[in-house]
Each structure stands twice: as structure tokens, then as C-alpha cells.
């Protein structure tokens, strides 16, 4: 399976990762090679095998719905680069 620069453009958009136009071909080349490696999986008959998502057969634990964390707004605000009057500043992104 071979990917073209246009395919990379679409995938990069889905992933919201900016890729410069001049690098598209290189990514297409690398990803095509990777997909070639992955087609090896097709040799193996896996009919009826249950997919394994996780190495341990763990059950999802539950805990009582009690408060374990308190708000640490002031502490978090000292760690973020853009704040004003207790608010987090984000760029204007709505046209």
C-alpha cells in the first residue's frame, strides 16, 4: 500500500498536525514503507481470535464519589504563561 502526499495532507488534517508542504513527500515515503511492514500481519489467519486491548485481565475499579481534590486555581495559574485577573488567557480564535 502506497500513500501519496495528498493522503498525508488528509491524515495530518485529521490529526491536526501541521506539516510543511516540502516535507509531505518524505512523510508519504516513510508511512508507505511502514504500511508495507504492517501488511505482514495479513499473512496470519486471525479468524475467531478475540482482540487483546490490555495485558492484564483487570476489572474497572470504582471508588466512592467523594471529593478528593480541591481547587488549586492559584497554583495552576502560576504555571501557565498567560493569565489576567484570575483568568486563563487564550488567543482570539473565533472569526
Amino acid at each position: 500500500m502506497s500513500l501519496l502526499a495528498d493522503d498525508i495532507k488528509k491524515i495530518a488534517h485529521l490529526a491536526r498536525v501541521g506539516i510543511n508542504d516540502e516535507n509531505m513527500a518524505a512523510y508519504a515515503h516513510d508511512l508507505s514503507n511502514l504500511l508495507g511492514l504492517m501488511t505482514q500481519m495479513g499473512e496470519l489467519d486471525t479468524e475467531g481470535v478475540k482482540p487483546m486491548a490490555h495485558p492484564l485481565d483487570l476489572e474497572q475499579r470504582l471508588r466512592p464519589d467523594t471529593i478528593i481534590e480541591t481547587n488549586q486555581r492559584e497554583k495552576f495559574q502560576t504555571l501557565t504563561p498567560h493569565t489576567e485577573k484570575g483568568l486563563y488567557l487564550v488567543p482570539k480564535v473565533i472569526d
Binding site: A15, V17, Y27, L44, T46, K50, P51
Partner: peptide
Amino acid sequence: KRRILMGTYALSAGYYDAYYIKAQKIRRL
């Protein structure tokens, strides 16, 4: 970036079963 792109592709509609589910089955084997 390469791995994010690869992962996004493997999880995208139409390829999910062929790559991601297939890999999980092999993981069990």
C-alpha cells in the same frame, strides 16, 4: 509526527479493522 500520523491512519474509518483490530488479535496470539 510520524507515529501520530500512522496511528491516526490506523484508527480512521475504513482501516480500523484491517490495522488496529488485526494488531490486537495478533497481540493475543
